[in-house]
Simulated scan of single mutants.
Amino acid sequence: MNINKLMKQAQQMQAGMQKAQEELAQKTVEAQVGGGKVTVVATGAGDVVDIKIDPAIIDPDDTEFLQDLVLKGVQEAITKGKDMAQGEMSKLTGGMNIPGLG
């Protein structure tokens, strides 16, 4: 086992992972809930960047329904973003489960 070769491979993997994380911060996923009445967009880094609400579902007498839809949309978008990130990181690590990555 050549330690220099192993160190070089680790450095290359680290550089590749940093680049992938930067790219994931630019990629987005979209989650629609309530039959498409609420749309949430998040990045692969898990940041919510946009929420769209169809005005037709805004009922001042039933704000709880809208709050539930928004929460569900945000949760689904973040999950999709994490899944996308995990898939990208898995490509870099060759499927190895490295703690703290993805």
Rank of each mutant, 00 (worst) to 15 (best):
V74T: 02
Q26N: 14
I51G: 03
Q26I: 04
E22V: 13
I58T: 06
A25Y: 05
G87F: 03
V70A: 02
Q32G: 07
A15L: 06
V70L: 00
D83Q: 14
T43D: 09
G36M: 02
A85H: 05
M13K: 08
A10M: 03
T28D: 02
Q18N: 12
G73W: 00
Q26S: 06
K8C: 14
L24A: 03
K8A: 15
T28L: 02
I58G: 05
A56Q: 10
D61Q: 15
T43V: 09
I98H: 11
G16P: 06
F65A: 09
V40T: 03
G94Q: 10
E22M: 08
D61K: 12
K82L: 11
A10H: 00
I57W: 03
D61W: 11
V48E: 00
L6P: 03
M84C: 08
E22P: 09
E30F: 01
V49Q: 11
I51M: 10
Q11A: 15
G73C: 02
K72N: 13
I57A: 04
A15N: 15
T43I: 10
F65R: 12
D50P: 04
A45F: 08
G95K: 12
V38M: 02
G35Y: 07
G81D: 00
L71E: 04
G87W: 03
S90C: 01
P55F: 14
K19V: 11
K72W: 09
K52L: 13
A42Y: 02
F65G: 10
E22L: 07
G73D: 00
L71M: 10
G94C: 13
M96I: 15
K82D: 15
K91E: 04
K37R: 12
V33M: 01
P55G: 06
A25C: 13
D59V: 03
I57E: 00
T79P: 11
P55Q: 14
N97V: 05
A85F: 07
A56N: 14
D83W: 03
D50S: 11
A25M: 07
G81I: 02
D50T: 06
Q11D: 13
L71Y: 08
